[in-house]
Amino acid sequence: MSLEQTHIAEMPLAAGTSGGQGTAGDYFALLKPRVMSLVIFTAIVGLFAAPGHIHPWFGFITILCIAMGAGASGALNMWYDADIDAVMARTAKRPVPSGAIAPGEALGFGLALSIASVLMLGLLVNWQSAALLAFTIFFYVVIYTIGLKRHTPQNIVIGGAAGAFPPMVAWCAVTQSVDLGSISLFLLIFMWTPPHFWSLALFRQGDYHKAGIPMLPNVAGRAETKRQIWIYSLLLVPTITLPALTGAAGILYAVGAAILTAVFLLRAFAVYRMVDDEGDVAAKKLFGFSIVWLFALFALILVERLVHLPAFASVFT
């Protein structure tokens, strides 16, 4: 029987458990805290990079609501994906497949948190950013988790948008609009996602195959995946210029991003030239560096705002 046929509704819980016994720690794990930390960081940068002012208290509320929304998305993702999480080594110990939390509890927790995060952001900050947060949760759960993940090798290309929205939501909390600056931050994460996840998929290919997820290496082969990683890495070059050109970032970012992206390209080229029996060392290195790359680029923007460095565009005027 395929995984798609044995879905969560019919899935038995792990032996000896009936749900309802999850600890607060299990519920915290449902929020995917590691993913949430990157979401919080990029949202903080979005908040600082946006032109305009927000009261620090409402800045805090914005970040809290975005974190709650990200956690809610994680909980709903774990509810829906419990069947495939159970067969992958990396995810088998998550609270739902391990039986600590019943699927219905994860669903209820995720829905409650989603509604609370959107309502709080709308009532306390503004409804534009709340609408964008609601769309982000919808996109991650319905478009990516339910719609794309199990059905197309392009899952993370399109689904990557969900992870790219948080700085845009924070920006919108300040400006009440979506403009070119916030779109440039969105694109930075959006274009980073494919090489990041495909390098992971190269050395976790067996796991994804076992779970029946059509990741690119399983569907199109390793050679095509390495080629796609290289193409998407090249596309990062024009993408990194956008925050500087739109005024969202300054000269420090421009210099730092150029150096970091040159290293990124070297690592991606090493993956492109990687021989398959080398133990995927180049793919592991690219995966690790890609996390540093994204963190560093957003950190540069944050530092510029905190020390009031001039915008890149103003250097030429």
């Binding site: 009261h55 208290w57 409402f58 509320i61 809290l64 709080m120 306390l124």
Partner: peptide, 13 residues
């Protein structure tokens, strides 16, 4: 507490 403080901040603003 969050809603209470938010109300105070809004009133102060």
């Amino acid at each position: 507490i969050l809603f209470y403080v938010s109300t105070l901040v809004k009133i102060a603003k």
